[in-house]
Simulated scan of single mutants.
Amino acid sequence: MYHAHFGLRESPFHITPNPAFFYAGNERGDILEAMLYAIGHGEGIIKVTGEVGAGKTMLCRMLESRMPPHIDMIYLVHPNLDPLEVQHAIAAELGLSTHGLRADEVQRALHAELIARHSAGRQVVLLVEEAQAMPLDTLEAIRLLSNLETARSKLLQIVLFGQPELDDNLNLSSMRQLKERITHSFAVPAMAPALTGDFLAHRLRAAGHEDGALFTPAAARLIAEASEGIVRRINILAEKSLLAAFAADADVVEARHARQAIAESPFGRRRGLQGRRRWRVVALSAALALLIAGIYWSILAAGANL
C-alpha cells in the first residue's frame, strides 16, 4: 500500500529469502565466496551456523543461485527423519524410486546414481537445513554418505546449515567422526549496528528506491538496538516503520516511527520490559544502599553522643 508513496516497485523488507535482496556486507559476501570455493574444490563437509533469523537461509538460496551448471543441488528441509528415511529422501531428490527397497539396496542405488552423475561430469551437492534438529543417528548416516568417493573426489558434497545447537551436538564424543570431516565452518554474525543503516538502504534500492535514503540515522539506530542485529527482526521492524511513516504521510522514516514499530513488536516489548526491570533493580539497589548508609551514620552518631 505504501509502494507509490515511497517510490518502490515492491516491498523491500519481506522476510522470505530473496537473492535479489542479498546484502554482501557484514561478512556475508565473504562467507558466500568461501563456500563457493570449498564446494568447487570438493573439500569435505561444510558447516554454517547462526542464530534464528540471522540469514542462513538467504545464504543457502544465494549458494544455489551461484552454482555453475554442472552442479546438481539437492535438499533436505525436514530434519526429523531417521537414518533410513533420510536415505530415501536423498534418493527421491535424485529422482530414484526406492519403494520397497531394503536399506542396503537404497545405499547401492544411491552409490550407482552418484557414480553415473560423476562419470557424466556432474557434481552433486546436498544442502541440509535445520541440521541442529536432526537425530544424532541421522547425522551419522549423512556422514557415512560422505564416504562415497572416487580415487580423486567426493561423490557427494554436503553443506550443513543449523543453529548454534548444532555445534553442541557435534561436540559430543559420539559425533567426533562427523566433526572431523568438517573442513570449513562458518558462523553468520549478527548485523553490526553501524551497518544497519546501510543494510536498510541496500534493501530499499533493491526494491526500486532511487537512493535508499528513507530511514534517518536515528531511526536506523533504534532498529539496530531493538533487533539485536537479527536480520529477520530488522526486516520486521523496518516494514512496520515504513507503515507508520506512511500512515503519518511522512516522506522519511524518523525515530518516532521506529519507536512505534518497536512498541508494536513482541521482541520490542520484551526488550522494553527487560529495560524497565533493570531500572527497577538499579533503583531498588540505590534505595537499599541509602538505607544502609543512613543506619550506619545513625549508629556512628549515637556512639559519639555516649
Rank of each mutant, 00 (worst) to 15 (best):
A4V: 07
A4E: 12
A4G: 04
F6C: 01
E10T: 12
S11M: 14
N18M: 11
P19N: 09
Y23F: 15
G25C: 05
G25E: 03
E27S: 14
L36F: 11
G40E: 00
G42W: 04
I45C: 06
G50I: 07
G50T: 07
A54V: 06
T57M: 07
R61W: 10
L63W: 05
M67G: 03
P69Q: 04
M73E: 08
L94K: 00
G95T: 02
L96E: 00
T98S: 03
G100D: 02
R108H: 13
E113W: 05
A116F: 07
H118S: 15
H118E: 14
A133D: 13
P135N: 06
L136D: 10
L139E: 00
A141W: 11
L144T: 06
S146L: 04
K154I: 08
N169H: 15
L170Q: 06
S173A: 12
R176G: 04
E180S: 14
A190S: 12
M191P: 00
F199G: 01
H209C: 09
E210P: 03
L214W: 09
P217W: 13
R221D: 12
E225F: 12
E228G: 14
N235R: 00
I236D: 00
L237Y: 02
L243I: 07
D251R: 13
R256V: 14
H257I: 03
A261G: 00
E264Y: 05
E264F: 09
S265N: 03
R269F: 05
L273A: 14
R280P: 02
V281Q: 12
L284R: 13
A286Y: 08
L288T: 15
L291M: 15
